[in-house]
Amino acid sequence: MSSDLSQGPTEADSSTPDSAAAGVTAPLSGTLRAKPTAGWALMGSELSVLFRRRRTWVMLIALAAIPILIAVAVRISSAGSTPGRGPAFLSQITNNGLFVGLVALIICIPLFLPLTIGVVAGDTIAGEASSGTLRYLLVAPVGRGRLLLVKFVAAVAFVIAGTLVIVIAGALIGAALFPVGPVTLLSGDTVSLGEAGVRGLLIAAYVIVSLLGLTAIGLFISTLTDIPVGAMAATVVISIIAQVLDSLPQLDWLHPWLFSHYWLNFADLLRQPIDWSSFGSNALLQLAYVAVFGALAYGRFSTKDVLS
């Protein structure tokens, strides 16, 4: 490998001192066998880098702003909302503030969540490559496969954080502005606050699982390029294309294979009894996407000449 120092570490993102430092202090013998402890240390440093980035915080705040906007808009509008108009559950907010988080999820899933995931997942490898820190990561005694895994787990951590931020911000603002009480399910049955909380967490879990496939796709695209913006945009575009294809009835046969197909089916967890079939199908589908694109990312990344 030639050492092309034109893109030196001077360009390194100032918010990634940990990874750069880890690279510099690690022994400069990349052939060492990967140690498990090094993997965990890398994991910790990766997570702390991710969640100390100003960009991450801006995205999480933007996600939290959506339920707040919805709640405030519903609160200050004098006209009562008509059932059946607008996003599902919107008309229920005035009766029960807990629905704010649900409406926010419905609004965020098609665009906002994929957008933020595209930014994080597209940045994983390409961001390090463009800032010149990838080489230093690779000289640490951590195999490329493990580095890829660490990057994926960090991106998934952001997915979890983003989803929980929406749900929790929605619940808090809903409780602040509207009455909170037992929740009416889609089947017309009413469940207590405790069970409603459990179902809310199940829905958050469903949404997190739903987005794993897209995260893996973003990771793979990120290994293809050294330009993070390109990887981010491509990931977002793919999520939009998948949703467009999913809305074309002529492509019926393709729909069950699209990673976005089950995105909005989390309402099946609000039926009585719970309909687990979409949860199961969704989990299997996302697992398949993670396996396929994880393997592709590994194939690409482990054979890639890292020049910067």
Binding site: A288, A291, V292, A295, L296, Y298, G299, S302, T303
Partner: peptide, 15 residues
């Protein structure tokens, strides 16, 4: 290098 691509080839076939 070729071997690194084996999972990417095998997993879709398995699925």
């Amino acid at each position: 290098k070729w071997k690194r691509w084996v999972p990417a080839a095998v997993i879709p076939v398995v699925i």
